[in-house]
Amino acid sequence: MAEAAAGKKVIVKVKRQATPKEAAHWEEFALNWRPSMNVIICLRDIAENPVTSDGKPTTPITYDSNCLEEICGSCAMLINGRARMACSALVDSLEQPIRIEPLTKFPVVRDLSVDRQFMFESLKRVKAWIPIDGTYDLGEGPRMSPEVQEKGYPLSNCITCGNCLEVCPQVNDHNGFMGAAIFSQVRLFNMHPTGKMHAAERLKAAMGHGGIEDCANAQNCVKACPKGIPLTESLAEVNREAWRQALFGWLVG
């Protein structure tokens, strides 16, 4: 233990907030460095020994995590001021002290844990699903060209982490903007052979409150997306579909 204590330290500052109503404050921790540490490992170290760097006992940090391989979308947080996934944030690539804060565009539950229900509600609003008749046997699905699959597959990789909302200047308290992820789903379902039949419904929702027009092309979303989803392409595509629907929808029904 002595040599570990004498070894390299990782300094981590965490923004704490006990309940949604209480004020936030910062706590600093000094952890033992190990190779290939990520931010999740830091938070686990703190949970095992919740003592601040000035020796004060505290509580373990509440945070969301699950898969730890950047596919469940749970552990999005601000790390050194940037929205990203904690599991893939390697300590050696971060400037110290590492500052960890909850996302700011969603209500804080406690510490780093936030409530992203807004995104799931938005998915309902735009009807992000294929309305199948039922799960009983109705034979094969529609044929799809590999080209469509290759366009659709990256979009269906969206993990609803919320990073694209977090970095978007248009997502804030004065604005109901649903965020890039949602419109990318609209594009996905509108490109599917069955989903296409209900494209107008999704487009109407995309033109409603918090809809696509609130996008102001800052294009931060595409840079922050951990899955490399072409969000700006999706926004542009849905924009085009939407105004065509608005202009000509009433003509062709």
Binding site: P169, Q170, H174, N175, A218, Q219
Partner: peptide, 22 residues
């Protein structure tokens, strides 16, 4: 009015297109 509905964050995310936005 649109300006008032946005909230620039270019100091946090100093990316080219974000600069253009602001």
């Amino acid at each position: 009015w649109i300006w008032l509905r946005g909230k620039s964050n270019v100091s946090q995310y100093p990316w080219v297109k974000n600069w253009l936005y602001t």
